[in-house]
Design a protein around this nucleic acid. Structure first.
Length: 278
DNA sequence: CCTGAAACCTGTCTGC
DNA sequence: TGCAGACAGGTTTCAG
């Protein structure tokens, strides 16, 4: 599922807990079990298992699409869910679900399970989280990011908007859904060269991105395909996977094309081609 | 710097 | 029913 709003939803769930499921901060990990070794990106599995044992969970945060779990002894557990990853807090007595890849056993009767059907997700355990996170661009929801800076960053690239916004070093957390939705709201064609975006358009794009991300978070993320249950932002998509259907704003037929190997959905009338006159 | 293709994986859906 | 092909929320690597 995971784009920024989905990761944020999981982050808040783990941080605050729910009725039956305890909040994780303050809880100790007694030991872990690795069912798919390639899920552990760093360090090697043997060292990972020894270093994770008996670590206390202190703070749970998000940076881009990474979940950042601070542990005692200055360790950080970083988890990237990629395409199909999810994190479940569940009783230890349950059978392992089909796609469990890494299990963190807690000191009570619960465990934290990393479930990931497509095996693309990755886990790091490190004392230097910046080695992994420092390449990320700014957080879109951080008010520290001003329209002027966003405009300046756009000016520095000739790339098309769609692949640029998906580039995590340009801005962190956007994925295919929220990029398409943000471009639609801003009225910008996905193929527009970034350095052709005007100052006003840049401001609108930043506002639009923030709006769709906040809506996504408010709806607890989107649930698509067979992977995720929980959020319902998929019921509020304006263009994503709506190709062939009618644009709510102008009535035109929503189109789909492939840009940078990613399905891209847009309204040909609300998002005019770059260079086309209105 | 930019683009496109391929790779890493499993599951679902569509069409023949 | 079987089977091939397309497609899926992401990222990295490599060729041109």
């Amino acid at each position: 599922m995971p784009e920024l709003p989905e990761v944020e939803t999981i982050c808040q769930l783990l941080r605050n807990g729910t009725r039956e499921r305890l909040a994780l901060p303050g809880m100790r990990i007694t030991h872990a079990m690795v069912l798919w070794p390639r899920s552990i990106f760093y360090p090697d599995v043997e060292l990972f298992l020894s270093q994770i044992s008996n670590r206390k969970i202190e703070v749970i945060n998000r940076r881009g699409k990474y979940l950042v779990i601070s542990l005692d002894a200055d360790f950080y557990l970083l988890i990237h869910l990629r395409m199909s990853g999810d994190l479940w807090v569940e009783p230890q007595v349950e059978e392992f679900a089909k796609h469990h890849r890494v299990i963190f056993f807690l000191e009570n009767e619960f465990r934290l399970a990393f479930n990931d059907a497509r095996k693309f997700g990755r886990v790091w355990l490190t004392q230097n989280p910046l080695d992994i996170l420092s390449g990320l661009g700014p957080e879109p929801l951080d008010e520290f990011l001003k329209p002027q800076e966003f405009f300046t960053r756009l000016q520095q690239h000739s790339r098309q908007l769609k692949p640029l916004l998906l580039d995590q070093s340009f801005i962190a957390g956007l994925g295919n859904i929220y990029t398409d939705e943000g471009l639609f709201m801003a009225g910008l064609h996905p193929l527009t060269p970034a350095n052709q975006v005007t100052y006003d358009q840049a401001g609108e794009l930043l506002e639009s991105i923030r709006f769709v991300l906040r809506e996504g978070i408010r709806r607890n993320g989107a649930s698509i395909d067979w992977v995720y249950r929980g959020g319902d932002f998929q019921n509020y998509f304006k263009v994503y996977q709506r190709d062939g259907e009618t644009c709510y704003r102008c009535g035109s037929k929503i189109l789909r094309m492939v840009v940078g190997q990613r399905g891209t959905h847009y309204c040909p009338k609300c998002q005019p081609e770059p260079g086309a006159s209105l």
